[in-house]
Design a binder for these strands. Structure first.
Lengths: 193, 193
DNA sequence: ATGAGATGAGACAGGTCTGTATCGTTTAGG
DNA sequence: CCTAAACGATACAGACCTGTCTCATCTCAT
């Protein structure tokens, strides 16, 4: 009764259910049994789609990366200048911090639980973090030399990542405000040499 | 032969052994059996000192906070100006990133695995993060008004936290360099209003 | 040296974990 | 309608988890 999800929609349903549980409880703390129970799916159905829990985690992270990218793509369309683009990204994060079930950055959490550099989950995290960083480099390269764009992008990236962590500790508003102050300086004047 | 650790030194030995394992493998992924085996200690010895694994985790975090604080205290003694103090903290982190068994920030990892705000581990993380932040506020208050010192301290704190995470992804050097660039601007000129 | 506390060693309980196997049922496409 | 694939339900294996319990041994201060 509850679900007429069919075709390959079952696979996606498992991914999104696992995402919600991983986000709230963590990866090691979330068992396969809880995922399939929450998804209303047989265990073998999950193991036919994903060869292991680890592969499911990678799939969840990559799906989340794609969704995040498409959301930022929509924001970029309505931003003409780099300043507007950066402001849009900061605004997106500020709204995210206030969303109902915000539990910090899933990729930061994945990095914490799977910190070995040759782990598949580590690679998925690196993909997402480089993706957002490259996005800002591209935006900033419109109005500044590429070397400086890389520095400014990394600084903004660092502030956003830290703001996400601080948001989990109840200081998201102040963190975003301070990130904006630094951004305005970085985008207006020179820094470094 | 391996151990003549005795008295209440056994408790401390368990804490430091658990610290090394938690740091490398994470909290949920590290079982009690591995901790006591690595420490060369009976299971009941551990459970007489710590009522539960969760309390052991809190103890490990608080001990690590104290050690971190005493290290920074020594650095503060040889720093006259806020600029020197901030530079010393950044330098400490830069050396930390290059240390042999660097695996990122244990407190960030704890926050990832125990993200519920009313959890004892969460509180231990918050203590450490506020501690380093307050330390910088105190340093900066020597040469700037307290409101601005709070903002600058938070920005520097954010850059340091993000640099620690980036160091785990192999970008620690560039991250610290960029943190230094922002610090020099924050300490020299005005920001915000 | 003697009694009290700390410890070592290991069995044990009860639960959960990942992953596999089996079998009956449902669904979808030709 | 009919066949082949997908799915649900469940039992199962083997390992690991946290935490408790017992008992022999060791250490140390008095």
């Amino acid at each position: 009764m509850s679900s007429h999800v069919r075709g390959s929609g079952k696979r996606q349903h498992i991914v999104e259910t696992a995402y919600a549980l991983f986000k709230r409880d963590g990866f090691h703390a979330t068992g396969i049994d809880r995922i399939i129970a929450q998804a209303g799916v047989a265990k073998m159905t999950m193991y036919r789609h994903f060869p292991s829990k680890e592969e499911l985690i990678v799939e969840v992270l990559d799906w989340r990366t794609a969704r995040f990218e498409s959301q930022l793509d929509r924001l970029s369309d309505s931003a003409k200048t780099p300043d507007e683009g950066i402001a849009a990204i900061l605004g997106w994060h500020e709204r995210w911090f206030d969303s109902a079930d915000f539990h910090g950055c899933l990729f930061q959490h994945a990095l914490a639980e799977f910190g070995e550099p040759d782990h598949a989950v580590f690679a998925a995290v690196a993909r997402q973090k480089m993706s957002i960083q490259n996005r800002m480099v591209d935006m900033l390269s419109q109005t500044m030399p590429p070397v400086r764009a890389a520095d400014v992008a990394m600084i903004l990236f660092m502030l956003i990542e830290a703001a996400t962590m601080l948001a989990q500790m109840g200081q998201g508003k102040a963190a975003i405000d301070n990130a904006r102050k630094v951004a305005s300086v970085l985008l207006a004047r020179e820094i470094g040499e």
